[in-house]
């Protein structure tokens, strides 16, 4: 049904795993900082976000023990990120498909001409 090490919230992780994850996180931090000084055009943002995502996975899986967590806990964690994705997607879906006025006219700018037009 599941791998032997999975399904127990009590799991003693060897210190070497923690140190390895720590070193990987440090290396990725150095990498993301270094890449920012190289001109990749639009890919600078993509690379920065991919590295941040890998770092998050390392912390969640190893430091936060999701690698060895029960299925129930894993589903809960995924729910969190899924709902965040819903919030971002729906907000952007609205925001990016509107036709914005370049210079908002503000209340005064809208109401004064309206009143003049009516009376």
């Amino acid at each position: 049904m599941s791998s032997p090490e999975q399904g127990h919230s009590e799991h003693v992780v060897p210190v070497s795993v923690y140190v390895g994850v720590f070193l990987a996180l440090l290396a990725l931090t150095a990498l993301t900082t270094g890449v920012a000084y190289i001109d990749l055009g639009a890919f600078n943002t993509v690379v920065a976000l991919v590295i941040a995502f890998i770092k998050m996975l390392l912390v969640v899986l190893f430091f936060m023990h999701i690698r060895w967590a029960t299925g129930l806990t894993r589903i809960l964690v995924l729910c969190g990120f899924f709902w965040l994705a819903i919030m971002v997607t729906f907000t952007l879906g609205d925001e990016l498909t509107r036709s914005w006025q370049i210079n908002p006219v503000g209340w005064g700018g809208m109401i004064v001409p309206l009143v003049r037009h009516l009376f």
Binding site: T32, V35, Y37, D39, N44, A48, I51, V59
Partner: peptide, 14 residues
């Protein structure tokens, strides 16, 4: 980990 690239590294530093 997300704030660092999103705030400090926008558009690169080259």
């Amino acid at each position: 980990i997300f704030l660092f690239p999103l705030l400090y590294l926008i558009g690169g530093r080259y």
